[in-house]
Design a protein around this nucleic acid. Structure first.
Lengths: 226, 226
DNA sequence: GCAAAAGTGTTCCTTTTACACCCATGC
DNA sequence: GCATGGGTGTAAAAGGAACACTTTTGC
């Protein structure tokens, strides 16, 4: 059986979030043709003995010195002409990083990897814009029924931060009070003693995602839905 | 850049449905090692100039003489040792066929391709059981918020048939009357003059999925949800 | 005291759930 | 007319949307 000459790569959309800057995506500047100098989502060839996830994690480390704390396969893009060189099929992933881990690789070229606000993206290489649009859509859907939003926040966070995160990702207003009630009713957050006081206004409680409790409740049939 | 020696295949879970037999999956018997003689979901290598979808459709035609009327990418499975021969990554799809198109390839070996009831599956080759489980899960989720159930039924169908289909796929009882109301309220079905009379009982109306109406309503923000 | 943001409660409305009854057909 | 499945209605409960007020902080 002659196996055709098809190469396999992985690419990853890495999402980051900061209350003040909103949602951001990690991009790298291409050093070689095709699309030399153009921004792209990080990625590269899969090695023969590593899994696809391992390939993604390795590439992210190599190209941007970053580690994600959530990674999920998105879709495999395989149109025959998506790469001008040869037939290259790519399995795209998306990952989430905490805002406190925003720092990128310093040891090589800091110019090569940068965060871009989701609504201020440059023109991207290959079909990466398409992949990114698809990834954002997935994130919007997924965050509604899986507790992955915390992966974008600090380990401790206020209700207000969660609320803002959801408003940002959904790109629409959500009633602060109803959101709070609905979220707390899920009973998967642990309220901390500590409060966030930063200038004006009543300080808000810090919370932490209680994964054990979530898993237990999930086993009993609880459904996460926001 | 040395590109590793990784091969790419596609595999497809084909679902069929018959009111009396329930949900079924198309399997083919392997002719060669590894797993010679074992049942597997159809699939094969992607050719250099075809898209992934084209590869799936070609393989389904070659191996079982069947054409699906809905096809969706499921997931790409790439664990380094999923194939004992060499590194083979597979992009899995799932497809749906109408019950009236259940006939399989006759021209070659009828023994080679068969329908199996979803709860009476034989032991499968490779990681195909895992793929199938994943596919069934996706179908269960997807049918709740996308009008793909019709692709498993005849072009005209009764409410009872839709109801049974959903009960079968969800694997739980749904109140007949509430289901009917909720479904009809979506306003995406066209009621036909014709009625289904088969022996006893009051004949039920035939309906047809009105895709144009669905698309129009969807554009106005209607959300399909059952 | 005043501004600002956090936290709590209440009302209304829509949707879901759980039912019971009537209707059209074959025999 | 009776058995069988199709079609319609209704009441109670739950969930979601809209909205107002109180509390705690910094200055």
């Amino acid at each position: 059986m002659a196996t055709p000459n098809i190469s396999l790569t992985v690419d990853a959309i890495v999402f980051g979030y900061e209350p003040k800057d909103g949602l951001a995506v990690l991009l790298v500047k291409r050093k070689y043709a095709p699309f030399k100098g153009r921004w792209a989502i990080p990625g590269g060839f899969v090695l023969e003995k590593e899994s696809l996830e391992e390939a993604v994690e390795r590439e992210l480390k190599e190209e941007a010195g970053i580690e994600v704390n959530y990674l999920e396969q998105l879709y495999t893009f395989g149109a025959p002409n998506r790469d001008p060189r040869s037939r290259i099929v790519t399995t795209a992933y998306y990952g989430l990083v905490r805002s406190s881990h925003f720092e990128l690789f310093a040891s090589t070229d800091a110019e090569d990897a940068q965060w871009f606000a989701i609504n201020k993206l440059p023109k991207l290489a290959f079909d990466h814009q398409k992949i990114l649009t698809y990834g954002l859509e997935r994130l919007q859907n997924k965050i509604a029924y899986q507790p992955i939003g915390f992966e974008l926040l600090d380990k401790k966070f206020t209700m207000d931060e969660v609320h803002n995160l959801y408003e940002t990702i959904y790109n629409r207003k959500l009633d602060r009070r109803n959101f709070r009630k609905k979220f707390l009713k899920l009973d998967i957050l642990e309220e901390l003693e500590e409060r966030k006081s930063e200038g004006r206004g009543r300080p808000g409680s810090y919370y932490r995602f209680d994964k054990k409790k979530y898993d237990a409740l999930k086993n009993e049939g609880m459904v996460f839905e926001i």
